[in-house]
């Protein structure tokens, strides 16, 4: 086996030591700092981006609550406005209703009065017509003049007796 040729051991060991020391220095001084710098830079960048994202999300959260508060306020304002309008409308309506009712009552009263007047007039007319008729009938039957005073008394008595 070539691996067990002892004459080959010293050069291999020497060159192994040389190359391993070079490799160690190259790794420790050049390669590893370079890689770790990049990795840490990326880590920092990610952390920074995460912070930024957190800040932005907080901001948007705040804006949202503000917006909601404004919305709530507007809604309550609209509510009070609507309620005020409703109350005003109801008051107006009540007033016009009362006015209308009063007018209607007035009209009814006037109508009743006019009806009573008409009735009275009609009754008076009936009296006079009855008196005329009776006078005419009496004069025709007995050809005698009856005075208006007597005639009226008779009609009154008749009406009273009937009533």
């Amino acid at each position: 086996m070539p691996q067990l040729n002892f004459a080959d051991f010293p050069p291999q060991l020497v060159w192994l030591a040389i190359s391993f020391v070079i490799l160690y220095i190259a790794m420790a001084k050049i390669a590893i700092p370079r890689i770790s710098e990049v990795l840490e830079g990326r880590q920092d960048r990610i952390a920074k981006d995460l912070d930024e994202a957190r800040r932005l999300s907080e901001e948007s959260e705040q804006a949202k609550t503000e917006y909601e508060a404004a919305l709530e306020e507007a809604r309550s304002k609209a509510h009070t406005m609507v309620a005020g309008l409703k109350a005003e409308l109801a008051k107006e309506q009540d007033a016009s209703k009362a006015e209308l009712e009063a007018k209607l009552a007035d009209n009814a009263k006037a109508a009743e009065e006019s009806i009573a007047n008409a009735k009275e007039t009609a009754l008076a007319n009936v009296k006079s017509i009855a008196g005329e008729a009776a006078k005419a009938a009496v004069s025709k039957l007995v050809s005698l003049d009856v005075s208006d005073a007597d005639l009226n008394a008779a009609v009154e008595a008749n009406l009273k007796g009937k009533a």
Binding site: P10, P11, Q12, W15, S19, L23, A31, R34, I35, V38
Partner: peptide, 27 residues
Amino acid sequence: VDVSFTNSSLFMIIVIAAITLFLTLSM
């Protein structure tokens, strides 16, 4: 002490060159 440059030494040098180049060029 025999410190002859052998094919083994050559490949050790190639290996460390490859590692260093790989790590530095890629970064």
